[in-house]
Design a binder for these strands. Structure first.
Lengths: 150, 150
DNA sequence: TATTGTTATACTCTATAACTATA
DNA sequence: TATAGTTATAGAGTATAACAATA
């Protein structure tokens, strides 16, 4: 019944710091390729998860305006990491799809991320890591952090 | 020996989203007072932890440039939440100190934060919450997120 | 000479608004 | 009429640079 709110609040505060965020994304994206940075990474990553999507669909997933996604898509397109194509379902839409180079870039960054996380977690017993993962996932899905808009 | 890197990466990605960050800080600072927002909250909160500090000291703690801290301090000073005073230790310095109103504001926000976190965590067994807290704290202190500059 | 606080400036990122095309 | 994509504009926040004051 002890209260961990304070400790968690401190840890959360660190995570939300701009310089910390920046360091995370720089370590992820450094040297991966032209146009890949803190801002464009989520578009690249989100596209990999969705397979293929429109700017509007991605904007909902990423919590960004569709105009922002469109601009980042242009950057990534110019870098040869994604393609634009007319969407057959509705000719108002534009389907965004990763190129092979785009897929490779995501692969590299994912591996960096997962490896650095797993490296750190290897210090802890696996059952404790499972608990950590479960609660952290719940925290960002149903917790005080989650979107409550219906 | 299972790999939780992927799940944690997804949760982390959500936490780092701008709209999520904004929602967190709005829920914390909403209605607390003039000038209290996502940008100035860390200054207020950091000052509460340090007791009294200069802009340069705070800037190191918060990961911001001292010019930014100085400007936020002006905002908070104008709102009556902190005071500037010459620092006796060195007359080049300016000591920032919370006013009573500033202390009350921090108190309100801290309570909101801790309560919402504890509320969420009440669903989980206390020993699991302890594990979560321990690993999360380590994650932001020694983990892949932490500052490695000596 | 070096450091703090402050201010002015430039840069980055995002949201909003407006326009075009398609339904 | 309504919605997606795109582009232009404006706003917020930060870092950098420059200056004055003090050590």
């Amino acid at each position: 019944m002890s209260s961990h709110g304070k400790e968690i609040a401190i840890a959360l505060g660190k995570l939300l710091r701009r310089d910390v965020r920046q360091r995370i994304y720089v370590s992820l994206t450094d040297g991966v390729g032209e146009g890949v940075n803190e801002s464009t990474y989520p578009v690249l990553s989100g596209l990999e998860r969705c397979g293929s999507a429109t700017a509007a669909e991605l904007s909902a997933v990423l919590g960004l305006d569709r105009s922002v996604v469109s601009r980042h898509a242009t950057t990534l397109e110019e870098a040869g990491l994604l393609n634009r194509a007319p969407d057959e379902r509705d000719r108002r839409w534009t389907a965004l799809t990763l190129t092979d180079a785009g897929k490779r870039a995501v692969e590299v960054m994912r591996e960096r991320l997962h490896e650095s996380i797993d490296d750190f977690l290897s210090e802890w017993p696996d059952d404790q890591v499972s608990v950590f993962t479960t609660i952290l996932t719940a925290f960002t899905t149903n917790g005080p952090i989650a979107d409550r808009t219906p």
